[in-house]
Amino acid sequence: MLRPMIAAAALTLCAALPATAQDFGGVRLRGPASVLDRIESVDRTGCRLSQTSVTVGVNRAFGAGSQARQQIGSDSSGGCRPLVSTQVTAGVNLALGPRSRAEQSIESFAPRGLLATTNLNRGVNIAAGARSAAGQRILSQTGR
């Protein structure tokens, strides 16, 4: 007899209490209207809601005594600030041949997002040949 009563009490409680949820992330906003206002304001400026910039460089010196030099510059700011900005910068620099030489330089710049900014950079630099030399520089920046 007791079990049905407990079940009935639990059901009553579930029905009585309002459903609540906890959100994480995003800018502290006063309500849904302000969220829409923020999105519309970005729309009015002609800027994208989300912007992703990917810069990848591969530099290889294969032959004996060969030289390979690579310089990459990337600027995706363009005067716009999107809601979400993501930037990925990656470089692979290989000096594989004997007495080979490989040099790589990568610079990239992306704007800061209104809601979120993600900046990821990664470099792999290998001098595998005998008496080979490999140099790599990677600079990744986001706007303040």
Partner: peptide
């Protein structure tokens, strides 16, 4: 990041800067 000098008498130099 990975910087490797695998060959005999080889040289590998890597510099990585991240600002944000």
């Amino acid at each position: 990041n990975v910087n490797t000098a695998a060959g005999r008498n080889s040289v590998a130099d890597q510099a990585v800067s991240t600002i944000g």
